[in-house]
């Protein structure tokens, strides 16, 4: 087991290096460069100005050298300096990440809380009206664009209930009530969207497990259906479901971009859009890199959890 974990961890390294390479090169293919942005309407007119700025933001020298320098800075925990604010990128990320993290966690939790019971219900009552309704609902949530749902909530929440999510973001620890007011609607919308995928996975895994011999045996022994489902079937179905939940992390990170924009939440997603629009490429790099690393690590964690829980699993 330890050997497996070590091997799996060793595989992380090339992936992470690949990610840094992609992030580094991709930003250099952005349309127009940061110098154009900073010098505005007359940038092209003054090569001297351009040269000075390039020097200041270390855009000179060979691409290879730039990459190595950049990588060693990252290793030292330095993601560069934002071009618009002149603050270290890590400062901004440290401020914004917890907000997005909270939103994503809430959404994932909501999706699990909805999806697993509904998925079980759907599987147990396969092809019945309940099954149909549950599946329709979950696919329905998948089928509705999240920004549209959010707009409906914003518009009619106010028209019907006079409800407005406050503009001033407060930390969870600082002002839980206000934090909750801001976060709950986007978390519900994002969670509802995610629950579709999780629910379908739960359903098909449950169906499969329910046909296995051991569940039949359990039922034959006269155990109540509830005990069979929870103790035997669910325990065996939960692993693949958790894998799907782990894979959802990537979807969550993308989904927060839209919802943060909609609900004015100052998280990583809104920072990303601002940074793309102002061509603040150190910030763009930082966010894309961070989100990719989060996804890789969460997949890694799911894999490890998988092996720890189910010793049968051995990957090549």
């Amino acid at each position: 087991m330890q050997k497996y974990i070590l091997r799996r961890a060793a595989l992380l390294l090339p992936t992470l290096i690949g990610i840094t390479l992609v992030v580094f090169l991709a930003v250099r293919f952005l349309p127009g460069d940061v110098i154009d942005q900073m010098t505005g309407e007359r940038g092209s007119a003054n090569p001297e100005m351009r040269r000075q700025l390039e020097e200041r933001y270390s855009l000179t020298g060979s691409v290879g050298r730039q990459y190595v320098e950049w990588l060693s800075d990252i290793a030292a925990g330095d993601l560069g300096t934002s071009i618009t604010t002149n603050r270290p990128v890590t400062t901004d990320l440290r401020q914004r990440l917890p907000i997005t993290f909270q939103l994503g966690t809430m959404a994932l939790l909501i999706s699990i809380l909805v999806a697993i019971p509904v998925g079980i219900l759907s599987a147990v009552t396969q092809d019945s009206v309940w099954d149909f309704l549950a599946r329709s609902l979950s696919i329905g949530f998948l089928a509705v664009p999240s920004f549209w749902m959010g707009l409906l909530v914003l518009t009619y929440g106010f028209v019907w209930f006079g409800w407005v999510p406050p503009l001033n973001y407060r930390d969870l620890w600082e002002d839980p009530a206000q934090n909750f007011q801001i976060m709950i609607a986007p978390a519900l919308i994002l969670g509802a969207g995610l629950s579709g995928t999780v629910m379908r996975m739960t359903r098909s895994m449950m169906l499969e497990v329910l046909r296995h011999d051991f569940t039949r045996t359990a039922r034959a022994k006269g155990l109540s259906p509830r005990v069979v489902i929870i103790r035997h079937a669910l325990r065996n179905a939960i692993l693949p479901v958790m894998t799907i939940v782990g894979l959802q992390v990537s979807v969550v990170v993308g989904g927060t971009v839209v919802l943060e924009q909609l609900f004015s939440i100052p998280g990583l997603g809104s920072l990303l859009l601002t940074a793309i629009n102002t061509r603040d490429y150190p910030v763009v790099q930082g966010i894309v890199l961070l989100s990719a690393v989060v996804v890789v690590l969460s997949n890694f964690a799911v894999d490890i959890a998988y092996t720890l829980v189910d010793p049968r699993v051995r990957y090549a």
Binding site: L154, Q261, F263
Partner: peptide
Amino acid sequence: INVVPEYAQRLNNFLAGNL
């Protein structure tokens, strides 16, 4: 000066007296 990207959010916050 708040930057609120979504118009519905801006409008509702004004109508609710937050701006």
